[in-house]
Amino acid sequence: MPGLSHLKRGLLIGSFALVLLLSGCIGGDYATKGVYGLLPDLKFDLVSETGQRITEADLKGSTVVVFFGFTHCPDVCPTAMARLAAALDRVDQSIGEEVNVLFVSVDPGRDSPEMLGRYTDFFSEYIIGATATEPELREMTKRYRATFGFDEPDQFGNYNVSHPSAMYVFDGSSRARAIFRPADTISDMAEDLRRISGS
C-alpha cells in the first residue's frame, strides 16, 4: 500500500520537524548554548564563604552563574573564573550588579569558607564561594547532569579533582537559561549575560 507508506513517512518527517522546532524554541536564541526548559530550576543549600547557609532564595532576582570547581585546581578553574570576570567587565554596570557567580567547591575536605573567600576575592567581587558535604554536592551536581571525582592522593597527600568545565546560567526566576563552555568567547558570554539579565 504505497499510500500508507507515504503517509507514515510524512508523519515521521513532520514529527521530526516538530521536535526540531520545539528544541529551537526551548533552547532560545543565544550566542552560547541555550538550555531553557532542558534543565531543572536553580536549587541549592550550601555553606557560603562567610560561613553562613546560602540557598537559591538568597540570590532570587539576580542572574546566577554556577560553576563546580575547587581552589587547588591548576588550570580549568582559574581560567574559567578569569574569563567570567572579563565577561562581567564587559556587561553594563547596572546589569553587572544583577549577576552573581556561585563558585561551588566540590572539594569540601580542603576548601574551607576562608579559603573560598580568598580565592573568589582574587577574581571578582561578584563571585561567591560555597560548598557542602560530599553527598549534598553529589545531589546538586546530579541535578544538573554533572559529576565529580577524586584522584588517588600522592605521597604528600595532594590530589586532583575531576569536575565539569561548563558554567550554568540561571535567570532571576531561577530558570536554567544557558551553558557557557570553554570554547565560548568572552564576548558571547557577555552578550548572553546582558540578554538573560534584561529578560
Rank of each mutant, 00 (worst) to 15 (best):
T120Q: 08
A183F: 07
I186H: 06
K8C: 05
V104Q: 01
D151I: 05
M189W: 03
F123E: 07
G28P: 15
G24N: 09
M140V: 09
T50A: 13
L193A: 07
M115A: 12
T63M: 08
S199V: 09
I196E: 00
K142E: 15
A132S: 15
E191V: 05
D29K: 15
T120C: 15
P135Y: 07
G51E: 10
A17P: 02
T50I: 01
D29T: 09
A85W: 06
L42D: 00
L18Y: 04
F68I: 03
F180W: 04
L22S: 09
S15Q: 08
M81C: 11
M115F: 02
T55P: 11
L137V: 11
T79H: 07
F123N: 06
I127L: 15
S173N: 14
A17N: 02
E125C: 00
G24H: 05
M81K: 04
L20N: 09
M167V: 09
A176P: 09
Q93P: 00
M140F: 14
T147G: 15
M1R: 10
E125F: 00
L84N: 13
H6T: 10
D92I: 12
T147K: 02
L39G: 00
F103S: 02
L4H: 10
V76F: 03
M140L: 15
Y144H: 10
I26W: 03
G109W: 10
K33E: 04
A146D: 05
Y144E: 02
A31E: 10
L46G: 02
A17L: 15
D58E: 12
Q52A: 12
G69K: 01
M81G: 04
V65E: 08
V35D: 01
E125A: 06
V64G: 00
F44W: 07
